[in-house]
Every structure is written in C-alpha cells, then in structure tokens.
C-alpha cells in the first residue's frame, strides 16, 4: 500500500521529465500530471511493477479545462481558443489496495494522447467516450469511433463552447 506521494517519487525517478507535476493543493485527491505522449509507458510501468501492480483502470474521463481565451461569437455563444483539454485516469490496485490519479493535459487545437487501451482493455470504451464527447484523439487506439452520439454527429458536445446544431439529418435539434 503506497500513498500518491510515494508513487509520484517512484515515477519521477523512473521517468524524470515525463512526469510533469504533482498537484496536492486540491482537497480530497492529489493528482500526478504526466506527459500525454508518455502516458502509455507510465501506465504500463504502473501495471507491471511489482510494488505498484495497478491492475484496473477504474475510470477514465475527459475534461474541458476551459482555461483558454473566451470570446463571444456574433450570436452570443462562447468560443474558447487556446487552453487545454485533460484526461484523468483513476487507477486502482486490487492486489495492493492503493489508488492513484493521473492527469494529462493537451492543447485544445491538437488534442492527442497516447492510448492506454493496450494496457487495460477497460480503457477502450472510456477512450471512445472521451473522443466522442471532447474530440480527444487517442493515438494507437484500435477502434476510435463515436460511441454514444451518432457516427455522423458534428462537434463534441461536452466541450464548454459546444453549440447545438440547428439540424441533424433534416431534423430540428432544439425542440
């Protein structure tokens, strides 16, 4: 059983630059931030290391940090440019009984994260959902399609500046 801080130290030693930070100022959960293109290696290490053994991915959620520059378009809707989207990984070790939260942040214009589908199959649908809702592209995901929305839907609904389309296939959307 290890605390998040110990896990952070282990990771920092192993991966150095790729582990970008440790947020402890938030109440409840400390979060380890990781480079988006190194997340797969970090997760593989977390899963296979004998002291850590994070065998399940409890949850993977995309988040729109909405920390970019906010402007209004002509109809009065928010438009966010710049800033980041994030992915949170909640890992759990059934064998060791410890938990950890990882976070990667990618810029909004080109959100690309390494997929962890090959580490935990559980990530498959969660990553598809994050892609569906936020447009975060998971590199090397075998089957990155929309999951909840129709395949030909425009836009990413859970982004903070999402605007409802007027029509979908000739049907009026806001009814």
């Amino acid at each position: 059983m290890k605390t998040s801080e110990e896990i952070f130290n282990i990771l920092k030693e192993k991966f150095g630059e790729k582990i970008t930070g440790f947020e402890t100022d938030l109440p409840v959960e400390p979060i380890i931030t990781v480079d988006p293109l190194a997340i797969k290696d970090v997760c593989l290490f977390l899963r296979d290391d004998d002291d850590l053994l994070f065998d399940t991915l409890m949850n993977l959620s995309g988040v729109d940090d909405a920390n970019g520059e906010k402007t209004k378009d002509e109809e009065g809707y928010d438009v966010i440019s710049g800033g980041t989207l994030s992915v949170y990984y909640h890992l759990d070790s059934i064998q060791k009984g410890h938990k950890v939260t990882l976070k990667v942040s990618v810029n909004r214009e080109n959100p690309e994260v390494e997929s962890v589908e090959s580490v935990w199959r559980a990530a498959d649908w969660h990553e598809r959902e994050a892609f569906d809702m936020f447009g975060i592209v998971f590199l090397n995901h075998p089957d990155l399609r929309r999951i909840l929305m129709p395949e030909d839907w425009d836009g990413y609904p859970l982004r903070k500046d999402y605007k409802n389309p007027e029509y979908y296939q000739g049907m009026k959307v806001p009814y």
């Binding site: 938030l26 109440p27 409840v28 959960e29 409890m58 949850n59 949170y88 909640h90």
Partner: peptide, 22 residues
C-alpha cells in the same frame, strides 16, 4: 463545494458506480 476534484465509488447492484466530480 470548494475547488477540487473527487472520485468516489460505491457498490451498486450492478457493480462499481463511480462519480468523478470537478
């Protein structure tokens, strides 16, 4: 609530129900 994140899980009849709230 104050600024922060929480992931809380409970044992639902179907399995682990987790809420991740920011």
């Amino acid at each position: 609530p104050p600024k922060g994140t929480v992931y809380s899980r409970t044992e639902n009849p179907k399995g682990e129900l987790g809420y991740f709230i920011i």
